[in-house]
């Protein structure tokens, strides 16, 4: 039985790796799109992007079931339960990150005033780079049981937060100047939404890192950073 249990856990981790890679591919696509300064993906890329999102959703369901089954069937010991529960939490976050990536792409299509976007895209791009880096490191930290990466991600969340607040200030200044122009206002709000989504990615990355921390340390550090 213990052999079957080990096998089940190995399978779960392999599926996690697959899911994480898929999500990272989505993030890469968004990151490149933002860096390119364009507002919409090429058609073929867009198609892939949507397909991947479906794959992510399916994989998330599969993974969650596997986790629950293995807990129910194989009576894992404490450290294994920690690992499985962390994987479960991470899976939920990964799926959310996937959704947010799709959200960002959708929101970008709705930006009508390209000029406004261009003036802020460098800022957004930096924010995205950091968020993707955080996501990558947090996912890797769980796979490799690397505490340093997890700590780094958790600390970095503050920076992305700050980015988001600065953005609000910048936007506020602009809105005062061009109060009449609705079009611009809408564009701004959309960009702001984008930034919020990116911020959420970073947030999830931190969640993943916390779960990964819990998995090997057994300490729950949710909502008590430092």
């Amino acid at each position: 039985m213990s052999q079957k249990k080990d096998e089940a856990i190995v399978n779960i981790i392999a599926d996690y790796e697959k899911l994480a890679n898929l999500v990272l591919r989505q993030l890469d696509t968004v990151e490149k799109l933002i860096a390119s300064g364009k507002l919409r993906l090429d058609d073929s890329v867009q198609e892939d992007f949507v397909k991947n999102e479906e794959k992510i959703n399916k994989l998330e369901v599969k993974l969650s079931e596997e986790v629950i089954n293995s807990i129910a069937l194989y009576q894992p010991v404490a450290s294994q339960i920690r690992k499985l529960m962390s994987c479960y939490r991470i899976t939920i976050s990964l799926e959310r990150i996937g959704d947010l990536a799709l959200n960002i792409v959708k929101l970008m299509r709705r930006i009508e005033n390209e000029e406004v976007y261009t003036s802020l895209s460098g800022f957004i791009s930096k924010m995205m780079n950091l968020s993707v880096d955080m996501s990558r490191r947090s996912m890797l930290s769980f796979l490799n049981q690397d505490m340093e990466l997890a700590k780094w991600t958790i600390k970095s969340e503050v920076i992305v937060d700050e980015f988001n607040h600065k953005m609000l200030k910048k936007v506020a200044e602009r809105v005062n100047l061009l109060a009449e122009d609705k079009n611009i206002l809408i564009s701004f709000i959309n960009i702001k939404e984008m930034a919020a989504s990116i911020e959420r990615i970073a947030d999830h990355a931190a969640n993943i890192a916390e779960a990964s921390f819990y998995s090997f340390e057994g300490k729950d550090i949710r909502h008590k950073r430092n």
């Binding site: 890679n21 993030l27 990558r136 490799n144 990466l149």
Partner: peptide, 16 residues
Amino acid sequence: SHFIQFINMISEKSTI
């Protein structure tokens, strides 16, 4: 982890 990060840097694509 360094290995993964290096190949990410070299390929300019994210993976774990």
